[in-house]
């Protein structure tokens, strides 16, 4: 197997709001291999964004904490880093692009002023060197007129161009891992196609690893090597992309795929998962998906299923119990803490 660049083990994040405590992530484990694209799929509130914030050390200090587990980046535990150590890492070894290209650039600085920040900080470049570097990076992400663009302000650019600027910002220090949180959700289809195309091209040119967070299975199919499916703060399925699309194992993943309009006959009733995602406070014991699952068993309501793995295809569902052996014994203990 190839080398792991990032490994997350049993991560739990806790949010506090006064006396109330919420765990938006409850025991998440997965890893990213060097050079691969890992997709993280899930609906809003499943914890995919919180996971990425935890990796970047961007969780709000006062109201949240990592309750347990660790995040290993090149065997260094990120959950124990100080702010200062994190600053060295962010934008340098790990970088991130966000969903909203409109708000993630500061409107009062020119493109060049914003892009030179990481170069000056991490690479100690001179002004003219940094400028040259930035221009070549802007060209690399397919922006026209890079020499003029560098002195323009964000409001002069369109959404697609801004997202390209964000990508070039993320790439400037040649990071080993890039986290893209819904990078195309706010963009139009034709622009989305451009950006995905660009990300593919950039991936092919370097050995950077990409963690792609999205709710769009189409984007996953197009971009990823491996996929992690999250639901209500847990990883419910993890597999190679082809395996996942050929034979999804978890009822949630199955439901998600079947409910896509393109997988249903025109004008027919779409397959749909009944009910809605439970709120963090509503999850008690048992499988978090039990209340919506079409195959729910008595066991599902009582016991939290552990992760079953078969040929690198992980699924957290009791249905897998009979034929596959249990791998993660610790998981059941986790319920007691809750």
């Amino acid at each position: 197997m190839s080398e792991k660049i990032l490994e997350i083990n049993d991560l739990r994040v806790q949010f506090k709001n006064g006396k109330e405590k919420v765990q938006p992530i409850r025991g998440v484990s997965f890893h990213i291999n060097k050079g691969e694209t890992l997709g993280i799929v899930g609906e809003s509130g499943c914890g995919k964004s919180v996971t990425s914030l935890a990796i970047m050390g961007l969780l709000p200090d006062k109201t949240s904490e990592i309750a347990s587990g660790n995040i290993l980046f090149n065997n260094q535990d990120l959950s124990k880093l100080t702010d200062k150590q994190f600053r060295k890492l962010r934008g340098n070894d790990i970088s991130m692009i966000f969903q909203e290209p409109m708000t993630s650039l500061n409107p009062v600085f020119t493109i060049g002023e914003q892009l030179k920040e990481p170069l000056r900080r991490h690479k100690n470049m001179s002004k003219s060197q940094a400028r040259k570097e930035i221009i070549s990076m802007l060209q690399q992400v397919g922006l026209p007129r890079a020499e003029q663009l560098i002195d323009e302000y964000p409001h002069q650019l369109s959404g697609g161009m801004r997202q390209r600027v964000m990508i070039s910002l993320a790439l400037l220090c040649k990071p080993q891992l890039m986290i893209a949180d819904e990078p195309t959700t706010a963009l139009d289809v034709t622009i989305q196609a451009q950006i995905l195309d660009l990300l593919k091209k950039l991936k092919a040119e370097s050995d950077m690893s990409l963690m792609l967070i999205t709710h769009d299975l189409g984007v996953v199919a197009e971009m990823c090597n491996r996929v992690v499916v999250m639901y209500a703060g847990e990883v419910v399925e993890e597999a190679e992309v082809n395996d996942l699309f050929d034979s999804p194992k978890h009822p949630y993943t199955k439901g998600l795929m079947q409910s896509l309009p393109s997988n249903n006959d025109r004008k027919s009733k779409l397959f749909s998962i009944k009910g809605q995602v439970p709120r963090p406070s509503e999850i008690t014991g048992g499988c978090a998906f039990a209340n919506r699952c079409p195959h729910v068993l008595e066991r599902c309501v009582k016991e939290t299923p552990p992760s079953f793995t078969h040929q690198n295809h992980l699924s957290k569902c009791w249905l897998q119990d009979t034929s596959y052996k249990e791998v993660n014994h610790d998981e059941t203990k986790g319920t007691a803490i809750r």
């Binding site: 709001n17 919420v22 509130g45 964004s49 919180v50 990425s52 914030l53 406070s281 509503e282």
Partner: peptide, 17 residues
């Protein structure tokens, strides 16, 4: 991203209102 965070916060008390 912050919207998600906010949701995580707001969902909880909302359930009990």
């Amino acid at each position: 991203m912050s919207a998600n965070l906010e949701k995580a916060f707001h969902n909880e008390p909302a359930a009990k209102i």
